[in-house]
Amino acid sequence: MPTVTFLNKQGRVAVDCQEGETLLQAGLRQGVPLPYGCGAGVCSTCVARARPGTVETDWADAPGAQNLKHDKGECLLCQSLVTDDCEILVPGKIDLAQTLAETPAHHRARLHDVALVAPDVATFQVSLEGQSDYTAGQYFLVRLEGMQGYRPYSMTDFQREAQTLNFVIKRIPNGKFSEEIFSNDVSEAKVDVFGPMGLATFDPSDPNEARDLVCLVGGSGIAGIMSVLDRAVSVNHFESHRLFMVFGVRRREDFFFLDELKRIKESAPDNVSIHLAVSEEEGSEELDAYRDFPLHQGFVHEVAERLGDGMFENRLAFLGGPPAMLTGSLALLLGAGLPVTDIRYDRFG
């Protein structure tokens, strides 16, 4: 088994790397506080350097690899595999003497119960051979056995000692995993999963997070937000704190999870404000209510801007959705004065 040594000016730490395991997974699994975002080749947060020729990439065309300087040995830790011992230079600010308090792990698992919940969205479950804790808002990396590359999926609820994880997936044309789920009607499949991962989390027991929330979400980006809201409801968070949420899709038939959102609304009707938005329907800004929720025309950040005057101050914000929605919502919240430390999201796309 190869030994990977992560090093910088602050020190060095050596870990084992299992066959087929990425350098990021090897490091995180053994408590190395490596920087990462998506864990799946998109965000480029995990850029590091290897001696040229000592690592192989699992996905050369990864979106996050576009700006890499290969002549300097730059690589994405989340897409790098090794077969021999190697040294990896990580950013100097990382304190390699620190060890992660909670470490992700590999799990063998079974994917099952795929269910279409909207024309281009399905839910599915993954049952672990063991169990895992996770923090609300976190995700697991999932890989169909025999298929190259992991995909990140956020859990849609909050559990301790979870044995079955609940996910949502959007249909992506030509996406291998997505096509498999939607086209072949997978009733049972072996999968490898790795997690939990992700920093866009919510812990209401933390005094700094006992606050009003704002959630701006588009399409399947609602997954991790549902976990945050499930956690909040589980501790009656909205009895004493407010929620302002806009959930947007293209057309009203694309909505899903509305029963779940209704339960959240009913848990504290006076403090929970949930609005729906559709971006591709003609009409005035204010449309007829849909499934008991107020319905608006426009993109999520546009609707939030129209409705949210004074609603964002001092709130903790959670975002989920495609890149344009994230950027628009981020601009809105920054303009409203929220510090970046109070705005949480994963950039998966």
Binding site: G37, C43, S44, T45, L326, T327, L330, A331, L334, G335, G337, V340, R347
Partner: peptide
Amino acid sequence: RGGTLTCSKH
């Protein structure tokens, strides 16, 4: 926004 430039990537 407000004289602050934020790169949305990180």
